[in-house]
Structure formats: C-alpha cells, structure tokens
Amino acid sequence: MRGISGIVAAALLLAGCGKPAELGADKAWVRLPAVAGRPGAAYFTIRGGAQADTLLAVSTPAALRSELHETMDHQGVKSMQPTHDLPVPAKGEVEFAPGGRHVMLFDLGPGVKPGTRIPLALAFASGKKLELQAQVVGAGDPPPN
C-alpha cells in the first residue's frame, strides 16, 4: 500500500510541475502590396498565457507606421476598420490572417523584398513585449508554410 501512495504522490508532484501557459506568438509573415506605395499586411498567431492580456500595438522599423485592422463583412460587403486594441484570452489563440485581423504596414522601406525577414514588435497591456521575425512574400505569392 505504501508503494501505491508513493506513486500517486509522485504523479501529483509531476502534474504540478507542468510549465504554465506563457504568452507567445509565431507564424509571422508579411504580404507586400500589389501596387507600390500601398500598405502591406502582417499576419501571425498569438497564444494567450495563464492570464488574459490585450494587444495594444504592433510595430516594425521596416515601416513608417502600422495599424491593427480587422476585415468586417456587412451584408456581403467587406470593409476594413482600425482597432485600437485586441483582447487575448487566457490560454486562447488569436489569429491574424488574410480576410480577418491583420496589421497594416504603411510606407514599407525599399529593402523589404520577397524572401527577406522583418522584425515585428508586439506590445501588450501587461507590459509584455514579444518580437517575431516575419517572412516577407510578394503580393501574388502563397503564404509561407
């Protein structure tokens, strides 16, 4: 009996040693505009940590300005509108993808070309900051895998 209780105690200790959920992001990529001078768009996935948080801003030195946007569908007509912040649920996932949430990148630098990478800095209400390297693709190219 003593052996079984020892095994149960060890199992409970190991279960409590699991790494707590940590705020993170990955799968970052940028699509260049089809027309020079127009904005590009950045996409990525955020994984929520143990506590809910709020994404406040995304920036990059590769663009003069960036804005959080969301594509909306109103009676079959799609439009984009800026958002000022975005809740990230605890242990949830928030996806930035074509046709939905995205970051508009205005006035991209001339060195931003397909096949290069640019940094994206994500700032959260909790004070946490994440930096991602985003793969750049051309306007007609498929997203990176």
Rank of each mutant, 00 (worst) to 15 (best):
R2Y: 08
R2K: 12
R2F: 09
G3T: 11
I4L: 13
V8R: 00
A15M: 02
A15T: 01
A15D: 02
G16A: 15
K19W: 12
P20K: 03
A21R: 04
G24E: 00
D26F: 12
D26R: 13
L32A: 06
P33W: 04
P33F: 04
A34D: 13
V35W: 07
R38D: 15
R38S: 13
A42T: 00
T45V: 08
R47A: 12
T54I: 15
L56N: 11
A57I: 05
A57G: 09
V58K: 00
S59D: 09
T60M: 07
T60E: 07
P61H: 06
A62S: 09
A63E: 03
A63N: 05
A63T: 00
S66V: 00
S66G: 06
T71P: 05
T71C: 08
D73R: 12
D73S: 13
Q75K: 14
G76M: 00
K78Y: 14
K78A: 14
S79F: 15
T83M: 14
D85A: 15
L86S: 11
P87M: 11
P87Y: 08
V88R: 06
P89A: 13
A90L: 11
A90E: 12
E93R: 14
E93S: 12
V94G: 06
V94N: 09
P98T: 00
G99C: 08
R101S: 05
H102C: 13
V103S: 08
V103N: 07
V103T: 10
M104V: 06
P110W: 12
P110C: 08
G111F: 05
G111P: 02
V112N: 03
V112A: 02
K113R: 15
G115I: 00
G115Q: 02
G115W: 01
T116N: 10
R117W: 05
P119Q: 02
P119A: 03
L120V: 06
A121D: 10
L122S: 01
A123N: 07
A123Y: 04
A123S: 09
A125M: 14
S126A: 07
K128A: 13
K128C: 09
L130D: 08
V136C: 03
G140I: 12
P142H: 09
P142N: 12
